[in-house]
Design a binder for these strands. Structure first.
Lengths: 148, 148
DNA sequence: TTCTATGGTCAAGCTGCTTGACCAATACGT
DNA sequence: ACGTATTGGTCAAGCAGCTTGACCATAGAA
């Protein structure tokens, strides 16, 4: 295994991650959701089950809570989430998806499934599974946010 | 294949790409090269063989030529590259690595090989190869720059 | 020659993030 | 109970890295 192969793997990983993210984003936009950034999508996946606090979001997205707070404020203005009082902690506020937020989340999942489906045509369902499992074994809990 | 699996694959890809990039960067810093960003590394891989123009770099990095020009200016100040007159085109300037630039490139390759080596311990050499080949088949020429 | 395209830089502006300061509510120690 | 430290959240200012727009010099085509 040459050193240069390691760089090639890095480039391939970035290319695949970037392409997938970008195409999902395009799919979401094509479904009529404008003004959303990929980062919003990753926020949605954390908010989806039962909502989360700003601090939770910050940890999940790998940014400061101030930045997460700004992101939430942005999503509130766009109508995708709302802040509700937190049951059991008067300091905290529970950020939950609105109906529009849920619709956008579903759109993202559809778009993602579409792209990955195309990948499955090239690699086979098993190939995709192997890919995903390998990645999970090799970088469990890696940062969602890109390093540069 | 569930929709949510597609999102899991996306997350896994970003995690792996982010972790690899980050660890290479740490390895480079640990080898004594400070003030370099991952983006610089990807610039180096384009400059490595025989140098390149600012416009070439911009295309390779997926940014405007103004941004690439700023990046080059930064690298010049740090002593990693220098601008030479372009043989055969008086408008263009050939950006080439200095000795420090080459040293930094080698350091990055070493660091990358180190991390990927650890991955090979978990997946086997073949597993890593399968990973890389799958990625290349699925996203050839994808963007090096992350989408968010 | 003249007209257009290309390589490069300067300047200004914007976006998404950071650091720093601060307030309100909670948890802990005594 | 009380005082102190910790935690959740926001406001404000600043910064890094990128963008758009304008411009100049050289190159290539008509």
């Amino acid at each position: 295994m040459q050193n240069s192969d390691a760089m090639a793997l890095t480039a391939a990983l970035l290319a695949a991650a970037g392409e997938l993210t970008q195409r999902i984003h395009e799919g979401v936009v094509a479904r009529g959701f404008e003004g959303v950034r990929p980062a919003h999508g990753f926020a949605f996946t954390r908010l989806a089950p039962d909502g989360a606090t700003v601090t939770d979001l910050a940890v999940h997205l790998g940014m400061t809570k101030q930045a997460a707070s700004q992101l939430v404020e942005d999503l509130v203005r766009r109508g995708y989430v709302e802040r509700r009082p937190h049951p059991g902690d008067a300091r905290a506020r529970l950020v939950v998806l609105t109906e529009a937020g849920w619709a956008c989340t579903r759109a993202a999942e559809e778009a993602a499934a579409e792209v990955v489906g195309a990948w499955a045509d090239a690699l086979g369902e098993d190939g995709v599974r192997v890919l995903r499992d390998g990645l999970l074994r090799v970088a469990p809990g890696g940062p969602i946010r890109p390093a540069w």
